[in-house]
Design a protein around this nucleic acid. Sequence first.
DNA 1: AAGATAGTTTAGAATAATTCTAAACATGTT
DNA 2: AACATGTTTAGAATTATTCTAAACTATCTT
Lengths: 138, 138
Amino acid sequence: MRQNTLVDSTVMERLRAAGLRPTRQRLALAQILFGQGDRHVTAESLFNEAKSQRIDVSLATVYNALHDFTGKDMLREISIDSNSSYFDTNTGDHHHFFFERSGKLQDIPSEHINIASLPEAPAGAQISRVDVIIRVKA
Amino acid sequence: MRQNTLVDSTVMERLRAAGLRPTRQRLALAQILFGQGDRHVTAESLFNEAKSQRIDVSLATVYNALHDFTGKDMLREISIDSNSSYFDTNTGDHHHFFFERSGKLQDIPSEHINIASLPEAPAGAQISRVDVIIRVKA
DNA sequence: AAGATAGTTTAGAATAATTCTAAACATGTT
DNA sequence: AACATGTTTAGAATTATTCTAAACTATCTT
Ligand SMILES: [Mn+2]
Ligand SMILES: [Mn+2]
Ligand SMILES: [Zn+2]
Ligand SMILES: [Zn+2]
């Protein structure tokens, strides 16, 4: 709890810096998301994690927060599986293993994949992102 | 119509070869899907295309057919956008441009992307597919 | 050519992820 | 404290997709 105060203030600064009001709900969710290493969550998984920590937050707020954070580049959204969207706390350039059985994602640092010779983008098209997804049966 | 008979029989053979009964609906849908070059469709787009050709088929049947064809490796399913699944008539090894505005996909032959040094797959994991998606703002 | 059999199609209901609505509430400002 | 604006929420709505069970049809058997 003493530790928490410190961490909370870090998260609070991040929210303020992004221009998002540091509400109780956002602080709690941001703490879960950014308080540890890189993570990949779904709205549902984050909602459940919050519930298990007795954080009282609605599912709609979880969606709102995920989209707000994504809009401020604190998260990136990934569509891999048509069942649900993933949100990634690692917004840097990197790629993913996708474990088809468990539905889990694992980062691949961008240096570990060397994409030689990208094709030229079609006329007047700017590349906004290159995603490499390695699906593994496991 | 005379031409159609020829093409129909080709499609019919494909369905039979796959062990799928060549029903009126599957023949019509397969004709739309495989009768021209490579295509990327959604359930909805295929359903609309069928309707515009006065082919009387239900949406459930479109979904059934897409999944049946995918199960027989006549199509591959791609999740790019959380709104809906795409089905690709090109089942070979290749990659995609994804045009964010229009939601359209464009093939990139696999020779055009050179992936040097894939990371080793995690212990006991077999790679089932590697997808490269280049999202472009256009 | 019937008849039997198993696979297919269909309308509509059901499900699941996500978004919307509008009212209550909290935060930051004056 | 009062105000303005942003946020949260329950529950309804929306959308993509799947399910159900009954009608239908392709194919096999006789
Ligand atoms: Mn989304
Ligand atoms: Mn869905
Ligand atoms: Zn990641
Ligand atoms: Zn393709």
